[in-house]
Design a protein around this nucleic acid. Structure first.
Ligand SMILES: [Zn+2]
Ligand SMILES: [Zn+2]
Ligand SMILES: [Zn+2]
Ligand SMILES: [Zn+2]
Lengths: 140, 140
DNA sequence: AACACATATGAGACAGAGTCTCAATACCGT
DNA sequence: ACGGTATTGAGACTCTGTCTCATATGTGTT
């Protein structure tokens, strides 16, 4: 998982620096979604001495490579999800943060229909599903 | 449109104060989506002397009443759209900001299918469609 | 292995969004 | 008109994210 990110960075032609390697490892060991602040806290806790700016820079880079997707939680804050670089959507557990990928399942048909009705040209869409994962559902 | 908001506020049991009336009027005359900062700027331009905090407080109130929906633009910033309080989704023009409502068009089926596959209990979802409105499409 | 130079880094300043507190004010039922 | 309570504006504050710039570190070349 960390290797995957580093490979992608290499392919993208950027340098494989120490901070980037350490951050990739931190991201790889996280579960579910996380915020930039979470990562910064991890860095602090392990005294890695990596600057805040560097964390944000890497998040942006990985986002561009499609390995991280930024979602907007219902409370308005931003979170990241490690991701395959193909188009798909996310199911986010509001309790434990676990996420699952969801294939398009017919969304394309919905956007086509919306385009037809409205006359808009649709260029991108964002679908986020929130709820409880099987674990958290049963352990109510 | 402004009346609609004021009625809803009245029904919600909050006071119909001067600042709220003036803000409702400002919101009513906006077109397309707008940010909190846009509203604050409007207030400043017209020297209405309404504090920033009051603007945010009203946006939250109207959101709770379902008359305003907060969306997350592709660049990560938040914007508001005046809205009917029934569940639906938005088509946002990336060029001029125009928005159009879209009924569910089959989204429910998509969420049901996603729930079945993943075992999640889905509680809410957010679908945002971005593109160009008929005007902006033709005037390329 | 050392070099040269572009890229990346950390610190901290900065800008913007949104929240909070609190004394002063304005609404609204009586 | 009055009184109690909800609301207000000001400004402090917190948090997110960006920017700058002097320094450090990769990396292709020798
Ligand atoms: Zn994904
Ligand atoms: Zn869960
Ligand atoms: Zn709407
Ligand atoms: Zn348009």
């Amino acid at each position: 998982m960390a290797e995957e990110m580093l490979d992608a960075l290499d392919r993208a032609g950027v340098r494989l620096t120490g901070p980037r390697r350490r951050l990739a490892a931190l991201i790889a060991r996280r579960e579910g979604h996380f915020t930039a602040a979470d990562l910064v806290k991890d860095v602090g806790r392990r005294r890695l001495g990596i600057g805040r700016a560097t964390v944000f820079r890497l998040l942006e880079l990985l986002g561009e490579q499609g390995l991280l997707e930024r979602i907007d939680l219902p409370d308005g804050s931003h979170a990241y999800i490690p991701c395959e670089p193909t188009h798909h959507h996310h199911l986010v557990c509001l309790e434990c943060g676990t996420t699952t990928d969801v294939g398009d399942c017919g969304i394309e048909a919905v956007t086509r229909e919306a385009a037809r009705r409205s006359g808009f040209t649709i260029e991108q869409h964002r679908l986020e599903l929130f709820g409880r994962c099987p674990n958290c559902s049963s352990a109510n």
